[in-house]
Design a protein around this nucleic acid. Structure first.
Length: 423
RNA sequence: GGAGAGGUGGCAGAGUGGUAAUGCAACAGCCUGCUAAGCUGUCAACGAGCAAUCGUUGCCAGGGUUCGAGUCCCUGUCUCUCCGCCA
């Protein structure tokens, strides 16, 4: 949610930037917010004045009663009724404006960082780096679902029996490899000073709103309606919401957390090749890193997080590329996002395995996540997060890349975690 | 699941209809050989103003009664204690 002060100050610039970079026209929403805000402030000025008069009258009446001057008190009382009526009307109009503003603000995406390339779709994303994959072309290697079948690592059919499509069962060495990856990712993050958290996998409605999943992506989360709780689509939700409604002393910044959780996504509307094997699941494992920083440092922090994720992929020896997302592909809440994709040699395609974003104050404004500096001033903090990493597509790339005639080689860094070097 | 008690500032905790006590912590200033102590001040959101400042709102949430609600009434919600069940 964009801070209203920003819209007040730079309304036209925001409209122009969002149009240029995201190719989205938000002029009507922003202008409406702007006008509603004017009206709201006008209302408040009058409302405050009348309330003030009401308060004065009330305390006078109190004093008169105390002194036993009931007649005078009754005269004053009769004056209050009209005032009361007016206050009631103004208050409801004030609340209406406030609600309309909020509703509109929920529909306006974040202002992209100036370095975001303009563009409509993923084809306009900027490729910052790419491994040369020529050597992997035309090798006629098996896709991971065949490998999973061949070596009995992951059973997709069994998941269908128990739950439904998109809920695979990991078996034997498949399960161990999965666990090894999680452990590896957590340990690496710990070494970088990210404090580990193990958080709830269900969250309440407030948390959903806090990080922006609600109301924008209502249909994407599984909803346990009996208790009105949502299954988390990412660890970002519970971890970031820890700091909802908090004012943090500046010397605690930056705050760095890492957490492993399963992630649940309904993925309504997906079909076909996109969801084959591990490509897109309803339940998957992910290790997420989250940072809360001073506004002045958030972009440096983003670069650091990006290069950290890059080293993870390098340690796993996977071919990959690094993308800077264009405006049209940029998430609703993000100001700048980098994606990492690893190459799937069995499918001859790139698979997104990480997305690292700076949200600036877009989340913190909604969350009321602020910090207090040395001068006792209170300001919104910046929030960032990134996958480090999402498991299924890493697993897919890994299995396909390391296959040979008599099995699958385990990358060196993982061998101490798995206890075996070959499947 | 049953019964009871509760939700007040960063924390503790008083307040049963008339400006939200007090203690601790933290921060700033003053004072004092140093330290400690002491003294003074400091909550947040929104609005008005160039500013000093002023006003409004906020005692879990939403309604209601009243000139006036932390306090009374209704609904919801969460926490705690005991019992039951249970990994």
């Amino acid at each position: 949610m964009l801070p209203i002060q920003k819209i007040r100050a730079d309304k036209d610039l925001i409209i122009q930037k969002i149009f240029e970079i995201r190719k989205q026209d938000v002029s009507s929403q922003i202008n409406e917010v702007y006008n509603l805000d004017l009206k709201k402030r006008e209302t408040q000025t009058i409302l405050d004045e009348l309330s003030s008069r009401m308060n004065t009258l009330s305390s006078k009446i109190g004093l008169l009663y105390k002194n036993g001057d009931i007649e005078k008190a009754n005269i004053l009382k009769s004056e209050t009724s009209e005032l009361k009526e007016k206050i009631k009307d103004l208050k409801s109009s004030f609340i209406d404006s406030e609600n309309s503003i909020k509703e509109l603000l929920y529909q306006i995406p974040n202002l992209p960082h100036e370095s975001v390339p303009s563009g409509k779709s993923e084809s306009d994303n900027e490729i910052v780096y790419s491994t040369n994959i020529d050597e992997h072309k035309n090798q006629s290697l098996l896709p991971h679902w065949d490998l999973c079948n061949k070596y009995n690592l992951i059973d997709f059919e069994l998941g269908v029996k128990i739950t439904g499509a998109g809920f695979p069962v990991y078996i034997g060495k498949g399960a161990i490899l999965q666990r090894a990856l999680i452990q590896f990712f957590l340990n690496e993050a710990n070494k970088q000073g990210f404090q580990e958290l193990l958080v709830p996998h269900l969250v309440n409605e407030k948390s959903g709103y806090g990080t922006g999943q609600l109301p924008d992506k209502e249909g994407q989360m599984y909803h346990a309606t009996n208790d009105d709780l949502y299954l988390i689509p990412t660890a970002e939700v519970p971890i970031t919401n820890i700091y909802r409604d908090e004012i943090i002393e500046e010397d605690r910044l930056p705050i760095k957390h890492v957490g492993y959780t399963p992630c649940f996504r309904r993925e309504a509307g997906s079909y076909g090749k996109e969801v084959r094997g591990l490509n897109r699941l309803h339940q998957f494992d992910k290790v997420e890193i989250v940072q809360i920083t001073r506004p002045s440092e958030s972009y440096q922090t983003l670069e650091n997080m990006v290069s950290y994720v890059e080293t993870l992929i390098q340690k796993l020896e996977l071919p990959y590329r690094k993308l800077k997302l264009c405006g049209g592909d940029l998430g609703f809440t993000s100001a700048l996002t980098y994606d990492f994709e690893t190459y799937s040699v069995g499918q001859d395609k790139w698979l997104e395995v990480s997305s690292i974003s700076n949200f600036e104050t877009f989340q913190s404004n909604r969350l009321k996540l602020r910090y207090r500096n040395k001068n006792r001033e209170i300001n919104l903090a910046h929030t960032l997060n990134g996958s480090a990493l999402a498991l299924p597509r890493i697993m897919a790339s890994l299995l396909e890349l390391n296959q040979d005639n008599d099995g699958i080689r385990i990358p060196k860094v993982l061998q101490s975690y798995t206890g075996f070097d070959k499947i």
